[in-house]
C-alpha cells in the first residue's frame, strides 16, 4: 500500500526520543505544502505510541504505519 504513496520528504528519527522526535517531525512538516507526504522512521515503544497521535491532533493525516525488520516504524503523514 505504501508503494502507491509519493513521498515528498523523509526523515530518519531512529534513536531520537520524545519529544524531540515530534519537534523534528513538525519541522519537516513545516517545510511541506498542504497535501504533501512526509515519511518518518520512529523507534518502537514510546515514539510510535506518541508521535502519530500528536500529529493527528494537529490535523494531519496518518496514511499508514508499518513496522520494519529492526522493530522501528515507518509512518506516512499527509500534511493538512
Amino acid at each position: 500500500m505504501n508503494t502507491l504513496v509519493v513521498v515528498d520528504a523523509s526523515r530518519n528519527l531512529r534513536g531520537v526520543s520524545c519529544p524531540m522526535n515530534l519537534v523534528y517531525t513538525k519541522v519537516e512538516l513545516s517545510k511541506l505544502r498542504s497535501g504533501q507526504v512526509l515519511e518518518v522512521i520512529l523507534d518502537n515503544g514510546a515514539p510510535i505510541n506518541n508521535v502519530p497521535g500528536s500529529v493527528l491532533k494537529e490535523g494531519h493525516t496518518i496514511i499508514s504505519q508499518e513496522q520494519l525488520a529492526d522493530s522501528a516504524w515507518t509512518v506516512m503523514i499527509r500534511k493538512k
Binding site: P19, M20, L22, V23, Y24, K26, V27, S30, S54, K57, E58
Partner: peptide, 23 residues
C-alpha cells in the same frame, strides 16, 4: 535551516500546536 540546538532550546514552544516552528 534551523540548528539542532535552536530546535532543542525552543522545543517546548515548537511542540505547541498554536506556536510551532513558524511561531
Amino acid at each position: 535551516e534551523l540548528s539542532d540546538s535552536y530546535l532543542e532550546r525552543y522545543s517546548r514552544h515548537i511542540l505547541l500546536h498554536d506556536v510551532g516552528v513558524e511561531g
